[in-house]
Design a protein around this nucleic acid. Sequence first.
DNA 1: ACCCATTTGTGCGTATGTATA
DNA 2: TTATACATACGCACAAATGGG
Lengths: 82, 82
Amino acid sequence: MTEVRESKKVWIRVADELRGRIKDGTYRPDARFPSETDLVQEFGIARGTARKITARLRDEGLIYTEPQVGSFVVPNDGEGQT
Amino acid sequence: MTEVRESKKVWIRVADELRGRIKDGTYRPDARFPSETDLVQEFGIARGTARKITARLRDEGLIYTEPQVGSFVVPNDGEGQT
DNA sequence: ACCCATTTGTGCGTATGTATA
DNA sequence: TTATACATACGCACAAATGGG
C-alpha cells in the first residue's frame, strides 16, 4: 500500500486533464463529453469521482448535462466574442 | 450490532444461485437464460445488479449473450472432453 | 410493411457501506 | 470528524434491434 498519487486528489487531476481537452479542442463545442462510465473506464476512477468531476466542469460552465442523455461541451470558444 | 455476514453482497448471492442452477441442470445447455427483467422480478433486485450478474456469468463462460435477443446457457457441461 | 412487446445497451440521479488519510 | 475514493445497489428513462402477429 502506501501509494502517493502524486499527493494530488484524483478528481482534481482528472478534471484538469478534461479541462485541457476542452480548451485545446480535443473535445469540440457541442460535441459529446465522456459519460460517467467512460471516465470510470478511461481513468480507472470510481463513478462517484466521475460524477464529482463532471459536476465541477458543469459548475465552471465548460459543459452542460442533459439528464438521461449525456453531457456536452458548451458552445462558445470563449474568446472571439466582442 | 446484528452480525449478518452471509456473503452480504446481493450480486454475489444471486450469481451463486444462478450458477448453481446451470450446474445442476435447472437451466440446460442452449436453453434461454433469464432476462435482466426476469432476474429483477424473481430476486427483487435492481436492473443494474442483474446486469452485473449476467456480465459476471458471461465472464465465467457459463452463458453467452446476444444483444436485443437474450442470454443463453453455454452448451457443454464441462465434463471430460477427449 | 407495420405495430408492439421484449431485451439488451446506455446514461444519469441517488444513497449506503467501507476504507483511508 | 471530515474529506476523499471505491464498490455496491436501487431507481428512472430512452434508444436500437429483434421477433411475433
